[in-house]
């Protein structure tokens, strides 16, 4: 199985299906994990990084995900393949152009990827089309449990899952939704959305994550707090209050554009 086998397909999570898909383009949950008994990557020699890579690759390739799974050695991949993986949201830019032995395990239908040796030893993510955070949470939890049966994660009862950066410690969870908010942008209300997100300790990023532009009015909204609040609570906050509210505002702005503010849409 090679990258060229998937390059002609449309990612399953980007096919415009799923609940609320006119506004919520996709849902994503990722978990950051590190192996017990190993240093974090900034202090690892290449030999230790290779050891971690080998261990995790073996575990991940043996998982039963109900789909074909294949591995790409990111450090050896040509720039074209790296850019392809970044553009498909399968790995981060940091992972693509980082240093040392590293790789990614992918499901053929692209709903699951696992970056090995990114900022943490392991970052697994599940992606789905539309607003499907509960389904993402259920699936990633099952995959995490399967991995945990075979290896020991660095964990402390006090701080939870230990991550290289303390901003991810605890659950190590990053819940994000990709939102298409053209009407809020056109009616000049997008700043209100940014401020509301900031008040709720949520991060708003561009299409390709941290430090990227919000091209085509697509924004990624994600949680920042990962400690002292459970995974299910974070997911339910998104599903029960944050997303419905944003969808309501965007729909109201779209209605206004079509009724009282049609001049904005005129050429």
């Amino acid at each position: 199985m090679k990258l060229t086998d998937i390059s002609g397909d449309i990612n399953e999570w980007f096919d415009g299906s799923g609940p609320m898909s006119d506004i919520v383009v996709s849902s994503r949950i990722r978990l950051a994990r590190n192996l017990a008994g190993h240093k974090f990557l900034s202090r690892c020699s290449n030999a230790e990084k290779s050891e971690i890579l080998k261990k995790l690759k073996n575990v991940l390739m043996s998982l039963d995900l109900g789909d074909k799974v294949f591995y790409v050695s990111v450090d050896k991949a040509p720039a074209l393949s790296k850019n392809f993986l970044v553009e498909r949201h399968l790995i981060s830019r940091h992972h693509a152009f980082g240093k040392g032995p590293r790789g990614v395990v992918l499901a053929r239908r692209e709903f699951f990827t696992a970056m090995i040796n990114e900022e943490d030893h392991l970052r697994i993510q599940v992606l789905k089309a539309g607003c499907q955070l509960s389904q993402c949470a259920k699936q990633i939890n099952e995959i995490d449990d399967m991995i945990e049966q075979k290896i020991d994660y660095a964990f402390s009862p006090r701080f939870g899952y230990l991550t290289a950066c303390p901003t991810n410690v605890g659950t190590g969870i990053r819940v994000s939704v990709m939102l298409h908010l053209p009407a809020l942008k056109m009616t000049g209300q997008i700043e209100k959305f940014f401020n509301a997100a900031k008040d709720m300790s949520l991060a708003v990023r561009g299409l390709f994550g941290e430090g990227t532009e919000a091209a085509s009015d697509l924004y990624q909204l994600s949680n920042q707090v990962t400690l002292g609040v459970s995974e299910s609570r974070i997911v339910s906050q998104f599903e029960d209050s944050i997303i419905p509210e944003i969808v309501e505002y965007e729909n109201a702005a779209r209605s206004r554009l079509l009724t009282s503010e049609t001049h904005i849409l005129d050429d």
Partner: peptide, 10 residues
């Protein structure tokens, strides 16, 4: 983490 210092998740 908005004042939180102890893990209460998975």
């Amino acid at each position: 983490h908005c004042g939180k210092i102890t893990h209460c998740g998975k």
